[in-house]
Design a protein around this nucleic acid. Structure first.
Lengths: 105, 105
DNA sequence: CACTTACTTGGCGAATTGGCCAACTATGCA
DNA sequence: TGCATAGTTGGCCAATTCGCCAAGTAAGTG
């Protein structure tokens, strides 16, 4: 017995897809414009196969889409507003950092 | 070598804390007002210890805070704006659902 | 004090995740 | 055709996550 709705589960699924440093970084980068996998690999610094798998997680979540052009595959955000809430997340991050400072002093 | 900043890692950490159906549900519920653990347990429907651990994940992320009153512990959101982006997440959820429909038809 | 209610913590097993390597597909070029 | 570049997929292993049960703490009540 649980009040958790399918809608909340779906939302959590989207969050889960974003909740990895490399994936969130790539989304932040894609917010600036489309990038091919090799560019992202360069910035993320892990194996190409790892980057590819992260991108397919984002794609399965419906957060990014692809455009094949020649030998390259360009990724872009489907829903750029998804990064708007970063401001509020940063408020939490800042507040956490301040609490840490208090502990130090 | 990686361009991923500590800031992005911190953001991803916050997202990770939210990225579980039970935890997101509890945050949505706390957005309506403070709740004690036993109320949340009732709604989530898992073991009390499981709920308690989920809440401590949210607390470690700085997303909720507690107020002990008598034998009960009331949880509330530290940063209610954190749920504002749900609108955009829902846009993704809706879009995904539409794609599913297309496949069915 | 004993006892109940409210909650947290430790520990354990099952399941998932994340990284790499190796192998594969696909496109473009000589 | 053969070869290089770009990317995906499968497999494996280490690490993490999630749920439950059991045991512990903390506050209120008789």
């Amino acid at each position: 017995m649980s009040d958790i709705t399918p809608k909340t589960e779906a939302r959590a699924g989207i969050l889960k897809a974003m909740a990895h440093p490399a994936r969130l970084f790539m989304m932040e980068e894609l917010a600036k414009g489309e990038r091919c996998v090799c560019e992202l690999r360069e910035m993320v610094g892990t194996d190409l196969s790892t980057v590819s798998k992260h991108l397919s997680v984002l794609r399965n979540a419906g957060l990014v889409e692809i455009d094949k052009r020649g030998p390259q595959i360009f990724y872009s955000l489907t829903t750029p507003c998804i990064l708007k809430f970063v401001d509020c997340i940063d408020a939490v991050v800042r507040s956490n950092a301040e609490k840490q400072m208090e502990l130090v002093n």
